[in-house]
């Protein structure tokens, strides 16, 4: 783990900025990629959102007050970017959010970067039926194995509320998978 405080300092100074930013991207690119990918599902869209996330981080680092961890701040930017991207997409296509989710999952079957079997595809269909918050919590807890305390800082929700959301999400996904 990199020492966060010194990295932030380096990011704010012009002469060390470029090198520090490279370290930042290399440290967080994979984690943020998978976080975004599980929201937008498609690789090319993920790439766009991920690059925009890092550019926002770069442009706004001077405004980062250090009230939360750098890592949570970046996750928050990535989450917002991904959700805004989906909103814009549904507006452009003139369809509602649930319709968009269905479309995204059905596109997975033809996606060269999705190699899931029948069960994994069904799991994506089940996740697509969850409300936004439950979906985020499920992905962060189940796939990324994040601690509730970390998710709480990113999503600005109490640990108790997150546990309830996760529990509900797992129950819904399981009953969807059992349902045939």
């Amino acid at each position: 783990m990199i020492a966060e405080e010194s990295l932030i300092k380096e990011l704010k100074q012009l002469e060390t900025q470029a090198k520090a930013f490279e370290v930042l991207v290399n440290t967080y690119k994979e984690r943020l990629y998978w976080h975004i990918r599980r929201i937008v599902l498609n690789h090319d869209d993920t790439d766009d959102v991920l690059q925009n996330t890092f550019i926002k981080v770069y442009k706004n680092i001077n405004g980062f007050k250090g009230e939360s961890k750098l890592y949570s701040w970046m996750y928050r930017i990535a989450t917002n970017e991904a959700l805004t991207f989906l909103k814009q997409k549904s507006k452009k296509l003139g369809i509602g959010n649930s319709e968009l989710q269905e479309k995204m999952v059905s596109n997975l079957q033809a996606d060269v970067y999705f190699e899931g079997d029948e069960i994994q595809l069904k799991l994506q269909k089940a996740i697509a039926t969850l409300p936004e918050k439950q979906k985020l919590v499920f992905n962060m807890k189940y796939y990324q194995e994040m601690k509730y305390e970390e998710i709480s800082e990113i999503l600005n929700t109490s640990v108790g509320g997150l546990k309830a959301s996760y529990h509900l999400a797992v129950k819904k996904v399981e009953s969807y998978l059992k349902g045939g």
């Binding site: 490279e22 991207v25 290399n26 690119k29 994979e30 990629y33 998978w34 990918r37 599980r38 599902l41 690789h43 790439d47 991920l50 690059q51 890092f54 550019i55 770069y58 970067y113 999705f114 190699e115 899931g116 079997d117 069960i119 994994q120 595809l121 799991l123 994506q124 189940y142 796939y143 797992v170 996904v173 399981e174 998978l177 059992k178």
Partner: peptide
Amino acid sequence: LLPKSDGFRVPDGYFDSLNQGI
């Protein structure tokens, strides 16, 4: 019930070239 892997993959060498792209 729930598979731990989700079947998503990335193009070869994607993460290596990401930094330059940004």
